[in-house]
Design a protein around this nucleic acid. Structure first.
Lengths: 341, 341
DNA sequence: TTGAAAGCGCTAACAG
DNA sequence: CTGTTAGCGCTTTCAA
């Protein structure tokens, strides 16, 4: 079917020299005469020679592949992070192999296995929402296999990671709500074992505290990171005797789902309920009202994760750097109560 | 750093047999005694042996990798197609290497080169909006290199492809507009050399024809497939002496951008201008008004593209199948003029 | 029933 | 300056 790629041997035969001579000429080894080098390089280009990465990989025991495990590729957030990872991988001559866990613990374990089988040189991962047992990652660490986490991390594991300062971000959201006269601030969180859930919850509690608002357990609801579950969670909040006057959703899926439900209940945003999410720029401005949100530096998060990865494999260091990226609260219509200002 | 993977040789040494014996035992070759086979298989599992794909690849001259070239990964449409491709690749034991062209012709050529260098066994591609010269793909075809196009295809190239019935879809949109009393129907198209632009334009013209509406060149505007350009195009339409009373955008980027601009101009959707796009389910329902749109079977499109790819490499056939997937016009609020009904 | 040897494409140490 | 050789991990004749 496909014409075989031309090999060093092909060139060597054609030129009547040995394979090693061709190999050396191609890397400008000083031992080879200029004339020969030129001649060889010229014909190599003519014949469209490119080194066989499989052979190189075998020899050097490196595949130039990075495994990337994400919960779901069909999401602006993860697609953008991947894009960031890819951009630095490309600079380094690496390519990435993506494996989706679909938020499933079992699939995540499978992904690790498959990636290992493909001999990726390391893994950059965001753990699934189901993942509670982290022995599959522990195994990697025990073998000093390069591993980097981003966004949702395992705090108990000493691994380089890139996250976002969710604590500060959520605190600033609470202050913003308070400034707009909100008193009953609800938080729709993800599964409680996830680092982002915990982290943001702390920001929520501290924010309430700083604003002199009392924590009401009814207003903190945990749900899976899916639109369906978020809708249920929102309905639950709206069915409270004392409805919240503000809702903060832990990510974009949840924020948008909450928005739909609030509207469907005939409530006005922000007049009846102010809404803030953790989302991306684009879609926040398309919805109505435009959504106040904390924007992630997603692309940068990907680049940083990749940088940490290369730190490990290049320096052969085991230094465990934790990068925490800043976020920005961008205030739009969904949270500004005109009458209060 | 990383502990070396265990090889056949390691097992052979440990057991005091030859490498070939181990190799055979692992594939249940009848020549090896049951006892030995059992013993070898047991220890292989214990030592966590997995065959080195590089070695296998070298030997069999196959990498089990499929190259995927897309214009932009940070897009629901492409992320979803990728997800479809990945799902069948996984079933077949292949993995995919993604390369984004970022809608750039130069990057697309680079992607082809890089993918070829990585020895992918074939390429599944959606051409960039800049791509007019297709010699880089022609080269692949000349070498009988497995190639499949999806969505935006090269009609002049005889290559398996998966597309959507844009002609029919757009025709039905025009009829829908007509049923809602629209008479000045505008179409914001992509670059004219793209297959999807041409195809949908034909549906537009035929639809107008069928509805007894005259084609007005002012109402057909071409623009690049970016939000910025789509905004300009929309503004251009809104600045016409006789504004359109309906706009159809060729994809989601364009439809959402148009929506923003229309609102900003203080015009009401659908009362002043009805709007329809080619979009995904989720975001269409989040915007306000909810967007009437033609939904792509994106995941399926990915699966079909992958299926065509495996058809080529498995059957060693060169049969050029063209798959055309159905779409569905889902009517929501953005196009239904109540007063007319 | 098992082992030795060659070869996939490449590099590098060792000889000339 | 250039060639020979061995070896990366594996499969597959060919021998024993």
């Amino acid at each position: 079917m496909v014409k075989r790629h031309v090999s060093l041997k092909d060139l060597a035969v054609e030129l009547g020299v040995s394979v090693s001579t061709v190999s050396r000429a191609l890397k400008n080894h000083p031992d080879i005469s200029h004339q020969l080098t030129d001649k060889i390089q010229k014909i190599a280009i003519e014949r469209n020679y490119t080194p066989n990465p499989l052979a190189m990989g075998l020899l050097k025991a490196q595949t130039k592949m990075i495994g990337v495990i994400i919960p779901d590729i069909v999401t602006h957030f993860f697609a953008s992070v991947i894009s960031g990872i890819e951009s630095v991988a490309k600079e380094k001559g690496y390519f990435i192999v993506i494996s989706s866990s679909n938020e499933s613990f079992e699939k995540e374990k499978e992904s690790v296995d498959n990636l290992l089988k493909s001999r990726v040189e390391g893994i950059i991962a965001c753990i699934s929402q189901e993942t509670n047992d982290i022995s599959h990652f522990q195994r990697l660490i025990n073998n000093e296999f390069p591993l980097v986490f981003f966004d949702r991390i395992c705090e108990v594991l000493s691994v380089p990671s890139v996250t976002v300062n969710g604590f500060e971000a959520v605190k600033s959201i609470i202050h913003h709500f308070k400034d707009n006269g909100c008193k009953r601030i609800a938080y729709i969180s993800g599964p409680s074992h996830l680092s982002i859930s915990k982290n943001r919850k702390e920001g929520y509690l501290e924010g309430l505290n700083e604003c002199g608002l009392e924590f009401n357990p009814d207003l903190l609801v945990e749900c899976n990171l899916s639109a369906a579950d978020a809708s249920l969670a929102t309905k639950q909040l709206l069915s409270l005797d004392k409805k919240p006057d503000a809702i903060f959703g832990i990510n974009d899926t949840i924020a948008f789902a909450a928005m739909k439900v609030i509207k469907k209940h005939g409530l006005k945003i922000p007049e009846d309920i102010a809404l803030v999410g953790f989302t991306d720029e684009f879609h926040s401005t398309v919805v109505e009202p435009t959504l106040t949100s904390v924007t992630h530096p997603t692309f940068l998060m990907g680049r940083e994760a990749a940088r940490l990865f290369f730190n490990i494999i290049e320096k052969e260091s085991t230094y465990h750097e934790k990068v925490i990226l800043p976020t920005e609260l961008i205030i739009r219509d969904s949270s500004v109560k005109r009458n209060v200002l």
